[in-house]
């Protein structure tokens, strides 16, 4: 009844109405930013008086935009790799280990995810000021790794839990050493989990604003820091251009994930 669309009577039109409005709410900012990035109005007036690619030109003319994007990309890649490697080791230990305090440790690994980032940012800022890591790539990587690691641990843990240990046992009985069994059988078996962990870790780092604001220096800043700093001055359409490119990247990433998911399923 209530869970069968065609048996809901007029209720279904209420539900469809709310959902439709929500879709508009969710899409509106994305669509308007994309449209306004091509608008000629300096003040982002809609509808724009004319269309232009001027803001994209300004974006690419300013080396600081590209530079900060490159910094973001490099940091996010390093973070994704480290996060998956450390996260895989930790998840394997947590899932297959038999030591005491395993549950508590698992909870500890997830805490950076639930704690307000601003607390971590301020705390790390204090530490990095003292040890001279502020404004360094290493500092960025460490800070982003702390927020990315819980995503990797969570994703890989659930992939490992979903992977029957008997398959690993079967590989060992087939003559594979325990390490060989993990490399040849378990890792390919949880490949989708490792891939998701890498994507989530990359995104966690790539999108990270709060930590980055504290870690940044005038000479080293990530793309979110550059956007933040620009935003604080004015709402220039250059940001709309940058945002539109970021949205495009997000869509590409979503498609990539969908394609790979489909590939691993068949």
């Amino acid at each position: 009844m209530l869970l069968q669309f065609d048996r809901l009577g007029w209720w279904r039109w209420v539900l469809v109405g709310i959902t439709g409005l929500t879709v508009v709410y969710l899409l509106m900012p994305i669509l308007f930013i994309a449209a306004l990035s091509f608008g000629a109005s300096q003040w982002l007036i809609f509808p724009p008086p004319a269309w232009t690619t001027r803001w994209y030109g300004e974006l690419f003319a300013d080396p600081r935009w590209l530079e900060s994007a490159w910094v973001s990309f490099v940091i996010a890649c390093v973070v994704a790799v480290l996060s998956v490697v450390i996260g895989l080791a930790a998840a394997y230990g947590l899932v297959r280990g038999t030591f005491r305090g395993r549950e508590a440790l698992k909870a500890f690994f997830l805490t950076p995810m639930i704690l307000p980032v601003v607390i971590l940012a301020v705390a790390l800022y204090a530490l990095f000021l003292r040890v001279g890591l502020n404004g360094t790539t290493t500092g960025f990587v460490i800070a982003h790794l702390v927020v990315a690691l819980p995503f990797a641990v969570l994703t890989i843990t659930s992939a490992l839990e979903g992977f029957d240990k008997a398959i690993e046992d079967a590989a060992i009985l087939c003559g594979a050493s325990p390490l060989e069994a993990v490399v040849r059988v378990t890792l390919p078996g949880i490949a989708h989990g490792l891939f998701s962990a890498a994507v989530f870790s990359f995104l966690a780092s790539w999108d990270e604003v709060v930590l980055a604001i504290f870690m940044a220096s005038p000479t080293l800043q990530t793309l979110p820091v550059k956007i933040w700093a620009t935003l604080r001055q004015d709402l220039t359409p250059v940001i709309a251009a940058a945002s539109t490119l970021l949205i495009g990247l997000t869509i590409l990433l979503m498609l990539l994930v969908a394609v790979i998911r489909r590939g691993t399923r068949s």
Binding site: I86, G87, A89, A90, Y92, G93, L94, V95, R96, G97, T98, F99, L105, F108, F109, T111, P112, L115, I119, L120, V122, A123, L124, A126, L127, I142, A143, L145, V146, L149, V153, I172, P178
Partner: peptide, 27 residues
């Protein structure tokens, strides 16, 4: 039996203790 030993958890644990738990406590 060959099971995931505690050692595998250590790198992640160290990272989170040194760059998460301790700095937050210090703050």
């Amino acid at each position: 039996l060959p099971a995931g030993p505690f050692a595998l958890v250590v790198p992640g644990l160290l990272l989170l203790v040194v760059f998460f738990a301790l700095p937050v406590l210090a703050l």
